[in-house]
């Protein structure tokens, strides 16, 4: 048997296979996807009740509220990124595979963004309309959210991988991620505010895009290294 050549599936097969499995799992457990979305909608609808119905105040607070809610909703979903895999032994199987771990974790992170970040982006125009954001700025907000949640998913996967072996690592995960998420929050809210006020805002979009590219090129390697450490 040893003389037959062993064909390893390609990197793309590894990436898409992991992505497909995680999307399938999300499909079979819709609660895990809907919970953070529900949380996002709740926070965003409770704010107007607390602030008051004045249109100027709402429009002024809208970018901040939306972004803080999106950040917290992402943090909420991050905890489960590797937890189930850790408990049922899937992580060990990923580590024991000839595929580079970076590729497999990137597949998982992509699935995480598709099931947590993307739904937030899709849902946000409804919330923005409720907050009376000028209709012309809605696409700006969607772009910032899309770029920002990509960064958050990638950075979050590093934190999730580091804390997966710890019991009740949620608080630690938030502490680890928040400092790295601050630039996303600041650029995200400022860009939407500037756009709403009719000022130039493209700088913010570029900064968010640069941050997302940086996270995409570094975070998967950190995640893979962190998973190895957590499984020692």
């Amino acid at each position: 048997m040893s003389q037959q050549s062993t064909q390893i599936p390609g990197l793309l097969a590894g990436l898409l296979g992991t992505l497909r499995r995680d999307l399938l799992l999300a499909w079979k457990r819709p609660g895990d996807v809907l919970n953070p979305l529900f949380f996002f909608t709740m926070v965003c609808t409770l704010f107007p009740v607390a602030i008051g119905p004045s249109v100027e105040q709402l429009a002024f607070a809208a970018p901040g509220v939306l972004w803080v809610a999106a950040l917290l909703a992402t943090l909420l979903s991050l905890n489960s990124l590797f937890l189930a895999d850790h408990e049922d032994g899937s992580i060990e199987q990923l580590l024991a595979s000839p595929q580079p771990l970076v590729v497999l974790t990137l597949g998982k992170t992509t699935a995480h963004w598709l099931t947590s970040g993307l739904p937030l982006v899709v849902l946000s125009p409804l919330i923005a309309l409720a907050f009376r954001l000028p209709p012309g700025t809605i696409w700006v907000m969607m772009t910032t959210l899309a770029l920002g949640t990509i960064s958050l998913s990638l950075l979050g996967s590093v934190g999730a991988a580091l804390t997966v072996g710890l019991h009740r690592g949620t608080a630690l995960l938030s502490l680890l991620i928040l400092p790295l998420a601050m630039p996303v929050l600041i650029f995200g809210t400022r860009t939407v505010s500037l756009a709403a006020a009719g000022d130039a805002y493209s700088m913010g979009l570029f900064a968010l895009a640069a941050y997302a590219v940086g996270a995409l090129s570094l975070a998967p390697f950190a995640t893979a290294a962190a998973l190895r450490i957590s499984n020692e």
Binding site: G14, G17, K28, D88, G89, Q99, L104
Partner: peptide, 25 residues
């Protein structure tokens, strides 16, 4: 391994199909 790495939410076929992403299968 002792923990099999199979997903309780997936069927046996779905679980095994995933292996083809990891190794010659």
């Amino acid at each position: 391994a002792h923990r099999t790495g199979l997903k309780p939410d997936l069927t046996p076929v779905e679980n095994l199909s995933f292996e083809s992403a990891l190794r010659a299968f």
